[in-house]
Amino acid sequence: MKVLIQLTILVFFSTHGYSQAMTNSTALKQSLEKATAAIRNAFGQGDAALIGQLHSPQVIKYFGGKNVIVGRAAVEKGARDWFQQSKVEFIENTVENTTFIGEIAIQTVIFSIKTTPRTGGKSTIGRGRAMVIYIQDKSSPTGWLTLREIAQEAPPKTD
């Protein structure tokens, strides 16, 4: 009987002591949606400084091949350079999945970005799928910062 009690205690602590707290509250979902909307709106407004503030200083963004952006300053500079040449707007943002683990959110989305050259010319639309890891952070204007992002080509639309 003593062995059974010890085993029960061991199993309890091994499964509960190390398990990750999975949460999925409405409040968390709403706060993350406000944060992601702020990022999309900042692109639409051409606000590179705000885009920088919404990313962790240690952010890493992987866009395929050697296209890797490391750090908040690099994200802000890349956005500023893009905005000098083009008007940018998100025209699609379909959330596929969101998971909350403690103060971390992992989200996959299908997105489309319309880029219109400022010097005239035809707009282009880039469509992709991204997995983004967000962390809650009081230094962020929205309470969330982008920590990691991986983007790839999105699957074709099935209209």
Rank of each mutant, 00 (worst) to 15 (best):
G120Q: 12
K138G: 08
S112L: 01
Y18L: 06
A105C: 03
A49W: 08
I5S: 10
P57S: 05
N41D: 09
A35L: 02
G102M: 05
I135R: 14
E153N: 15
A38N: 05
L147F: 04
G44P: 12
I104T: 12
I150S: 15
I106R: 15
G120S: 09
S139P: 01
S86C: 03
T142P: 06
T26C: 02
Q53T: 06
P141G: 11
L54H: 01
P156H: 10
A49S: 14
S86R: 02
I5G: 07
G120D: 14
P57K: 06
H55L: 00
P155A: 12
D47K: 09
A105S: 07
Q45S: 11
T98A: 06
T94K: 12
T116M: 05
K138D: 11
V95A: 10
L32A: 11
N93G: 05
E103G: 03
T99H: 05
S112N: 09
R80H: 05
S14W: 12
W144G: 00
T26D: 13
S86T: 04
F83T: 06
M1E: 13
Q107A: 13
A35G: 03
N67G: 02
D137N: 14
F83N: 08
F12T: 08
F63R: 11
I5W: 13
E149K: 09
R80L: 06
P141C: 10
L147H: 13
S31N: 14
T116W: 08
L28S: 12
T146D: 07
A21Y: 02
I51D: 03
H16M: 13
E89M: 01
G78D: 07
Q20W: 05
F12M: 13
K2G: 05
A74E: 10
V59Y: 00
Q85G: 12
T8K: 14
F13T: 15
V88C: 02
I106V: 15
G71Q: 07
Y134A: 06
S86E: 00
T94S: 11
Q85H: 08
G126H: 14
T142M: 06
K29A: 11
S56M: 02
L7T: 14
K87I: 04
V95F: 01
A73M: 00
K114A: 07
G143P: 09
S25K: 06
T119I: 04
A151G: 15
I91N: 05
S139N: 11
I51G: 02
G71K: 08
K2I: 11
G46N: 02
G17M: 09
P156I: 07
L4V: 09
V109Q: 07
I5E: 12
V59L: 03
P141H: 13
E103H: 00
N97Q: 15
K2L: 13
A151K: 10
S25A: 07
F100H: 10
Q58Y: 02
T94W: 01
V3L: 10
T158I: 05
T23V: 06
L32G: 08
T94P: 00
E153H: 15
H55M: 02
L4K: 12
N97V: 08
A151Q: 14
M22E: 11
E103D: 12
R127N: 10
M1C: 08
Q85K: 14
K61D: 00
M22R: 15
G71S: 06
F90D: 03
G71P: 01
V132S: 07
